[in-house]
Design a protein around this nucleic acid. Structure first.
Lengths: 150, 150
DNA sequence: TATAATTAAAGTCAGAGAAAGTCAAAAAGA
DNA sequence: TCTTTTTGACTTTCTCTGACTTTAATTATA
C-alpha cells in the first residue's frame, strides 16, 4: 500500500475516533510517526482532504503550530451538492440571482446569507477584475461559498 | 498550549472580571506569575491586543509603572464601519484571516458566516483571476460582504 | 530647595528556534 | 508515455528570550 493511502487511513481513523469530526496533528511529529517526509503530509491533505472532498483544513505555523482537519458532516447536503454540480465553469449575474433565490426558497440558506453572497457575487464587487473573467470568477466563488455550507 | 495563548487567556479573564473592561498589570510581576520573560508580555500585547483587535494599551515606565489594557466596546454597526474603513484597496489572505477572526471574536459574524466569507476570499476560489489582481479583489469582496451585514 | 545619582519600572529589537508551506525534480505506477 | 507520489531544499510565519535603552520616581547631596 502506498504511503499516501496509509496516511489517509490514519487521518480518517483519527476523525472517526473524534466526537467532533476533527483531527489535529503536528506535521513533523505525525510525519515521523508515519515514516515519511513532512511535506508529504501536505501532499496528502491537498490531494485527498480538499473542500471538494468534504474537508476543511486550518493550520498555524511557528512554535506550537498545528494542522487541523475537519470533516464536514453532510445533512441537507445532497440538495446543495446537486446545485453545486449544476453550476458550470461560468455563470452570469442573472443566473446567479436565480440560484440564490432557489436556495432561499428551499431553505438551504437564510436571507442574511443570501445577501452576503449576493454582495460578493455582484459586478460592483468585481470591478477590479476584467469583465471577461467575471463569470468564471462568479462561478468559482458561488461554488466555494455553497461548499462551505455543507 | 503556547505561552502566548496562556497569557492571552489570563488577560481576557482579567478583562471579563473587570466592570470597566480594563486590565492593569505590572509587567515584571505578571511575567513572573506566568513564568515567562517580561518582553514576552510585550509580544503578546502587540500581536493580540492591538487596536485592530479592539484594544487600547496605555502604560507608564519607572517606579510604580504599569500596563493598562482597555477593551473597546463598540456598537455593531459602528464596529463594522470601523473595520470596513480600515481595509485599504488591497488585502492579503493573511490579514483577511485576522479580520474575520476579529469579527468572529467580537460577535459581528457567526462561525457559519465566517466560513462562508473565508471560502469566497480564499486564493483557491480566485484561481481564475491573475495573482496580481487578487489582493484588490479580496479587499473589494470583503468590504462588500461586510457592508451587506449593516 | 535644586540638582544629581540611584533605582525601578516599561520599551525595543535582533536573533535563535520551532513549526508549517512551497515547489521542482526524481521516482514509481498505470 | 503520462499521471501520481515522494522527497528534500528552501521559504515564510510565529514564538520566545536576553541584552540594551528609555522613562519615571525616589533618594542623596550641594
Amino acid at each position: 500500500m502506498r504511503m499516501s493511502d496509509i496516511i489517509t487511513k490514519e487521518i480518517i481513523k483519527m476523525l472517526n475516533d473524534s466526537e467532533a469530526n476533527i483531527a489535529e496533528i503536528q506535521r513533523n511529529e505525525f510525519a515521523n510517526l508515519m515514516g515519511c517526509a513532512p511535506s508529504q503530509i501536505n501532499y496528502v491533505l491537498s490531494s485527498r482532504f480538499t473542500p471538494e472532498h468534504g474537508y476543511i483544513i486550518e493550520s498555524r505555523r511557528g512554535g506550537g503550530g498545528y494542522i487541523r482537519i475537519k470533516r464536514v458532516v453532510l445533512s441537507h447536503s445532497s440538495a446543495l451538492m446537486h446545485i453545486i454540480n449544476s453550476i458550470g465553469e461560468q455563470i452570469d449575474a442573472m443566473s446567479t440571482r436565480i440560484v440564490l433565490e432557489n436556495c432561499l426558497e428551499t431553505g438551504l440558506i437564510d436571507e442574511k446569507n443570501a445577501r452576503l453572497m449576493a454582495s460578493a457575487l455582484s459586478n460592483s464587487a468585481m470591478q477590479c477584475v476584467p469583465v471577461i473573467l467575471r463569470d468564471s470568477l462568479r462561478a468559482s466563488l458561488l461554488k466555494q461559498m455553497l461548499l462551505s455550507l455543507l
